[in-house]
Amino acid sequence: MGREISQRPNYQVLAIVTLQKDRILGGSQLSLLANDEEQQKRITQDIAKAMKADVVKMKDGDYLVIRV
């Protein structure tokens, strides 16, 4: 696995969309707070479409927008 880290593709986290304000701690990515789950999905989808990126749904409910 360590070997693979040095290989392409390199992922870049573009945005994090969460429902809990205290989960936004900082970082270079865009961090957005959604009011409800529907809005969270919609925002994530819009950003992913605009940035031609992929979406990861984390088990805690947050969404990450990632670009390869």
Binding site: T44, A48, V55, V56
Partner: peptide, 21 residues
């Protein structure tokens, strides 16, 4: 399963976060 992709029970990726994907 959710946003995770499995093939023959082998975990492959969790990049399928959107419903479309």
């Amino acid at each position: 399963k959710g946003s995770e992709l499995f093939v023959d029970g082998i975990y492959v990726s969790n990049l399928l976060g959107s419903e479309n994907a």
